[in-house]
Amino acid sequence: MASSSPPPPPPTLEDEISHLQTKINKLNSLLSLQTSTLLAAPSTRQLIPASSPLLTVSDSQLSHNQSSLYRSCATLTLFRARDPDPNAVDSGSILGLRIEVLSRTKFLRPYYVLLNRPYPSSKHLRVHRHTIPPCIPLSGLAGRYLPAPGKGKKKSQQDLARFAKTLRREVNRYHHRMGVVADLRKAAGLTGRDKEERGGHGDGDGDGELVDISPADAEVKTVTFEWADGRLGRLVMGDDGEVLKLVVLGGDAGGRDRETGRELLGGAVNVEEVIRRLASGA
């Protein structure tokens, strides 16, 4: 078809094919989106006859919508899974815990904790597999809220709800702390584009400028500030984002530089206030 009227810059056949391919993909995804919307609509359900196989598809679509709703609103959901290992305990039954994390207006891949029941004489759960990063003290939480069944009279109680709640809070706090560090960088003009702009209008605008802000430990509770003249600051964040400690070292005299520390903090007790100060200052 295309060969009948060759345009001036002749597009190669490969270009055309890839272009059409992306178009097909786009239309396909649009089609499936429309299908899912139509299938879940109450008016469509009334039209589907009871004997139609469409009804089962519609049912599964509805249940998917409901679970999505719970996932996005409650952000802590349970599901069932199966262990493919033929020797798995409890015939491979797995209880999954799904923790959603919302970061920068997007849902990240959820974190999973998969629990099973390995104890022959009790219904106690145990963490079987998980995808929680090691900077979150999962083992400590499991030790506190999901202890192994005690021997004899010493019975131990498990509290799955508290375990899940605390874990979810820890995961969210971790992501918030990471977000805070990103915001600090942004407020100080250290993100990619801002930096280039600043580099454009002169390098020599003072040694008092921040050149780097980065997390200094695994839990992102400590943040390192670096100034152009070699001063180095450490800020320790609390669980709720409060500033616990701040120290700045270096400067002209060497040793501790309380002046810069005060300047950076300006009476702020919360990291968000530091971000606001940095943003207004820059």
Binding site: S29, S32, L33, T35, S36, T37, A40, V57, S60, Q61, H64, N65, S67, S68, L69, R71, S72, P84, E100, K106, F107, R109, P110, Y112, L114, R129, T131
Partner: peptide, 19 residues
Amino acid sequence: GWSVYADEKVKESPLQTVL
């Protein structure tokens, strides 16, 4: 086999309505 839960490339947003 559990690595399917850890694969960050898989998109699994609860806002995705497509089955």
